[in-house]
Design a protein around this nucleic acid. Structure first.
Ligand SMILES: [Zn+2]
Ligand SMILES: [Zn+2]
Ligand SMILES: [Zn+2]
Ligand SMILES: [Zn+2]
Lengths: 161, 161
DNA sequence: AATAGAACGATATACTATACCGCACCTATG
DNA sequence: CATAGGTGCGGTATAGTATATCGTTCTATT
């Protein structure tokens, strides 16, 4: 099975995550005629700060501190842009949002959510997609969107119990 | 792959769904020392009325009409009981709830959500569980809870476009 | 400069969920 | 019988999440 993952759970050069993702998003916006405005860019940076999900109102507090917006619609508009264009994801289970760290447009990965440290990793798995497709088509169901959110313990937290 | 599903998308004797599920839940409560109180039973019946998800406040409106409760905690307490004991499920994507139609305690199925008619089916698939387990263990992740919600079109709605 | 569309500020409101207190009821247990 | 503990529930209040709407401002294009 072809499974690729972001290294969210392992020690890694996270500055590189941040810079490469911001750069990638900026390039994608330029190419696709999208505007990466200050508010949108700041929300992306806030989400990238850690591999954790942030609620809309946590983001809003941070925007307020930066003088970039003070009311809920400001952050929800930015999130709509980021999620709609595949630069961030909503974690339904948490009503919260994470930056997308995978260089692949409009994908729909599985999320691994650690209840110990709250870190979140995206996993793109062909086997999982196939299994979903098979499960659905066994019922004659046509898949359009998938939500796969797996809660548990990341390697470090599993060792620490 | 072993896939079992509820017949939610097919024409079926739904009265039978209702009665057998209510009976099964009542028996399980008796056996496990749980109280299927009037409020809890009524919420279960409301959820069973159709294979669709209902929001907490829709349920609350119905409870009000029956004189069985008038404030949010009434319905949330009943839902906590039903979900906690495996008699109903929360659909995270919809912030709504469905009755469980599968006779298996404390399972965690995939949900097929039709955007055409809003019907929801549960699918228990070993292949899917295995794929999730494989995806997680490839990252050293220990699975505790799974959310799998598949949106799309049921057979009827797919034909009707 | 004029125009159209996108983004934003601001207000208001809708929708979802929980904390907390106290009472009623039941059932041990002394 | 008295009492203590558990469970369910009514009620109040509040917390948390998300959207509708309108008018203005910004930006790209003509
Ligand atoms: Zn990183
Ligand atoms: Zn992603
Ligand atoms: Zn049925
Ligand atoms: Zn349908």
């Amino acid at each position: 099975m072809n499974t690729s993952e972001t290294p969210s759970f392992e020690r890694h050069d996270h500055e590189r995550c941040i810079h490469s993702t911001v750069g990638r998003v900026a390039a994608a916006c330029a190419e696709r005629g999208l505007q990466l405005t200050p508010v949108r860019k700041r929300v992306l940076e806030l989400l990238l700060d850690q591999h954790k999900a942030l609620g809309a109102y946590e983001l809003l507090d941070a925007l307020r501190a930066d003088g970039l917006g003070s009311q809920p619609p400001a952050v929800y508009r930015a999130l709509e842009f980021l999620v709609g264009n595949g630069f961030a994801h909503k974690i339904e289970r948490l009503n919260a949002f994470v930056a997308c760290c995978i260089d692949e447009t409009q994908h729909s990965p599985a999320f691994l959510i650690c209840r110990g440290c709250n870190a979140i990793a995206e996993a793109e798995s062909d086997g999982l997609k196939t299994a979903i497709e098979d499960t659905a088509s066994a019922c004659g169901f046509v898949v359009e969107q998938r939500v796969v959110e797996i809660e548990g313990l990341c390697p470090q937290c599993a060792i620490a119990q």
